[in-house]
Design a protein around this nucleic acid. Structure first.
Lengths: 186, 186
DNA sequence: TTTTGTTTTTGACATAAATCAAAAAAGGTT
DNA sequence: AACCTTTTTTGATTTATGTCAAAAACAAAA
């Protein structure tokens, strides 16, 4: 069965009609490392589920890339602003390894919310989880030193941590690459 | 009509049965400045809507209070972890002015989600909005200097900004009160 | 008005982290 | 192996911010 549906089901019951509708509308992509899943300014986007590989979400601010999240296999992800507001995306999503991605276009998803109200419950819960993650991230940035944030991220990500290039970790932690290198030296 | 229901309706249609159910279960509290709406460790909580006054959410970490959000009148708020996970609250919520608060207990709300599925849509959207706010907050903490964050907050809150004591602003921005004072001197 | 307690500011100094420039190390490619 | 590119580290220096102690300003209460 599709990874996307399996992940959705962790959040709540899905009727067989709803599952059919989802299955019919899921598209699967094979992407190469480095390719972009979504660009800033793009109007149409999707909700994605990663089956293989890992991706990052980042902003481009005056020539500089700012990494704001990473997602590994078996994760639901997307460009929140684009999805929630049906507006041009503010962020880029890039494959950091060769990836297999399942996607449901936003337009379709909005229709499915209407046709299958149970999806609202699933989406509510998954959004709630994301909120809790974001609160933790903000709290870390608000209260922890650079090295505390570094060790905290290691603990949070476990083995996946080592798949992320150091430059991207520094960006995500909001510190310079040099500082990160010095933290690691100890 | 109840402020809570009016705010909910901004996010989606509410049937009259659902409205009745909400109205029957809303409790209204009058609280004095300084009183706690919710304490860390408290198992039962509510989703709150502020009609008057303003409150803060904060954590207590090794004797120190860390402010993580402020809410002003006509805002939906609560202790996310407590609400989303039905667990003991991790945070405190305190009235910073005399307040009028409308509340729906969490237990009841979970029942209402089942009995009135349309509430899931409303809650999904309101949670989505909160996510976008959180992302902005995290981004600010990740990329901006202390003074940039300060001026950013002023812009974000407008007049309400001046209702917040400086100590709480410093805490929320993740800087020392002395640094805040020096930023303001200029 | 005086007293008391709290909030805010100031000054001196210590520490954390950024920046700039360059070297070293690691990975691919021919 | 030799070459090129990218990533990571190192050293020197600057800048931003924290800490500690005290003074000043403000607000509430007697």
């Amino acid at each position: 069965m599709n990874v996307l549906i399996r992940l959705f089901e962790q959040y709540g019951y899905i009727s067989s009609q709803c599952r059919d509708a989802l299955e019919k509308n899921v598209q699967t992509f094979h992407m190469k490392k480095g390719e972009l899943l979504l660009k800033k300014g793009q109007l149409s986007g999707s909700l994605y589920v990663l089956e293989k590989g890992f991706v990052r979400g980042y902003y481009l601010v005056s020539e500089k890339e700012i990494d704001v999240w990473f997602a590994f296999e078996h994760t639901i992800m997307g460009s929140t602003y684009q999805m929630y507001k049906s507006r041009a995306s503010l962020e880029y999503i890039q494959c950091m390894e060769d990836c297999i991605v399942h996607a449901i276009s936003n337009q379709v998803l909005l229709r499915l919310y209407r046709e299958h109200p149970e999806l609202n419950l699933i989406s509510r819960r998954s959004t709630e989880d994301y909120c809790l993650q974001l609160e933790q991230r903000a709290f870390g940035l608000q209260t922890m030193s650079a090295s505390e944030r570094y060790y905290n991220l290691i603990k949070e990500l476990g083995d996946d941590f080592h798949r992320i290039p150091l430059g991207n970790i520094a960006s995500y932690l909001g510190i310079s690459q040099e500082t990160l290198s010095r933290i690691r030296r100890v």
